[in-house]
Amino acid sequence: MSPDAVASMSPDAMTSEAPLFEARDLVKRFRSRRSVVQAVNGVSLRIPRGRTVGLVGESGSGKSTVARLALRLLDPTSGQVTFDGEDLLRASRGRMQALRRRMQIVFQDPLGSLNPRMRVLDAVGEPLAVHRIAKGSARVDRVVELLERVGLRSGDLYKFSHQFSGGQAQRIGIARALATDPDLIVCDEAVSALDVSVQAQVLNLLKRLQSELGLSYLFIAHDLNVVRYMADEVCVMYLGEIVERGDGDTLFADPRHPYTEMLVSAVPEFAPERADGRARRSVPRGEPASPSSPPPGCRFHPRCPKAMERCREEAPALRGVADGRAVACHLFDAGREASAR
């Protein structure tokens, strides 16, 4: 199957209209003096309007690099990125500036990503000034509106970020991202640093904003359950590649790719109603290889309990297996061929 065919094959429910965001075959290599790190290797994504695509993966999986490539904070080594039908990689500097208004990012460390010397008014209002959207009292009004939207008060306008708790600081980060009326928000581990009781608030806020404003999210996290809750479609990444994608519920209830299976079984079991019947799950083996020297063939084969001879030599392509499901694994090639015969 050609890469183009793979990229165009997506969950059918989501292909009814042109997606807001689409990435095709993104490749990103970082060169250092000694080695080349293949951070992202052929990732394709499409995010329909008003929907959420989730990315899960462990450290080194390349999920944060994908976030930066999506916003063109980094330029890919190869591949294509389109936003609302426009080719981001060919956009002029001025055009890019205009498009940036419509794409924002929320980071993991809420306190660290706010300038400690800025008052809330300036932190949230900065994008308004940068993009010359509003100034003076119009800007103050807009910031107040944004603060109320994310559940803060106008009384917080002149406070500094250190006067807020982590959850409130993340609300400020979200208000700042909303300032330019974006269509797409990339949430890069946006709730990972928060306490559980606060994490739920922020997740609810993000969902509410999505339905109120019709936002699209690229939601990146390492917590499977958080991604499942947030995303309409979940992509599982391993060493720079998407190994499986599909609807979160079915993906985690019935993982197809051996890595997804490993990931799901590794998550500590938390089901209060079953807390005494502790399941003895299988313990994952090995650790991810370094992205600077990925194994040949399928990148997962050294850790895969089901690895075959073929996996050592040939990298499997991402193929559709069932409704909205795609898996990059030779096990499913075999299944297809067998059923076709």
Binding site: S165, G166, G167, Q168, D195, V196, S197, V198, Q199, A200, Q201, L203, N204, K207, R208, D223, N225, V226, R228, Y229, G248, D249, F252, A253, F270, A271, P272
Partner: peptide, 25 residues
């Protein structure tokens, strides 16, 4: 009770808000 409720699990319904604890720690 509230803490346990606010943990997302594979069974958390996606179409409803998460039970959350108001305010901050």
């Amino acid at each position: 009770r509230a803490l346990i409720d606010s943990i997302p699990t594979p069974a958390t319904p996606r179409d409803q808000p998460m039970p959350a604890i108001a305010g901050s720690v």
